[in-house]
């Protein structure tokens, strides 16, 4: 464990908790893409199937349980409890265009052709594009609530910090994983224009609005 990975996990946890609290406190999921949240629930489910079979540390197991629990709770709040506030008119990104290619690629490019490893690879590929429905929704509505932009900033920072973690691990212990690295680079690149808007607008107290 190094500081970048720890900060990355912390940033990821903060993002997940911010979103859950936003929906719960405001009793509304306006501006939130339920489709992205479904993809994140699939990412955690397919990645953490070894939750009970492969014990790494208390930290690892507890974080996995928190991620899975929170992601399913978020999906439930969006499609169950507060579905009246769900913006189904704008949350229309075709997630099958993300699921199918990720699944096909996971079969073609992986470290080991075993069920667990193919599912892990699928979750890595899917996670790299899982935010697209959310970014699509923000572009369609043309703006995002400030709390939603904080959520996106924390979520985008998590994988950026993981890129630094892999840089650190490469130079300190020669470790590298091209599948995770390339997916992580794509994932982070998708946030670039958002990061620019966040830093140039939200941090100056303005609302995040995309140029019309």
């Amino acid at each position: 464990m190094n500081v970048f990975r720890f900060l990355g996990d912390l940033s990821h946890l903060v993002a997940i908790v911010i979103l859950l609290l936003k929906i719960w406190k405001t009793r509304s999921c306006s501006g939130i893409s339920g489709r992205s949240q479904i993809l994140f629930a699939i990412v955690f489910t397919t990645r953490y199937l070894d939750l009970f079979s492969n014990f790494i540390s208390v930290y690892n197991t507890s974080m996995k349980i928190v991620y899975i629990t929170c992601s399913y709770a978020t999906v439930y709040l969006i499609y169950g409890k507060f579905k009246a506030t769900y913006d189904f008119n704008h949350d229309t990104f075709r997630i099958e265009f993300l699921l199918v290619p990720s699944a096909i690629l996971a079969f073609l490019v992986n470290h080991d052709f075993s069920p667990l490893e193919i599912l892990w690879t699928f979750s890595i590929y899917l996670e790299s594009v899982a935010i697209l429905p959310q970014l699509f929704l923000v572009s369609k509505t043309g703006e995002a609530e400030t709390i939603t932009s904080h959520y996106l900033f924390a979520l985008g920072s998590y994988r950026l910090l993981y890129l630094l973690n892999w840089l650190w691990r490469y130079f300190s212990q020669g470790f590298y994983d091209l599948i995770a690295l390339l997916s992580g680079i794509l994932q982070t690149v998708l946030y670039c224009d958002f990061f620019y808007l966040y830093i140039s607008k939200v941090l100056k107290g303005k609302k995040l609005s995309l140029p019309a």
Partner: peptide, 10 residues
């Protein structure tokens, strides 16, 4: 390739 890749990251 039969490698036991243990993923220790979240």
């Amino acid at each position: 390739s039969k490698k036991n890749v243990a993923h220790d990251e979240l």
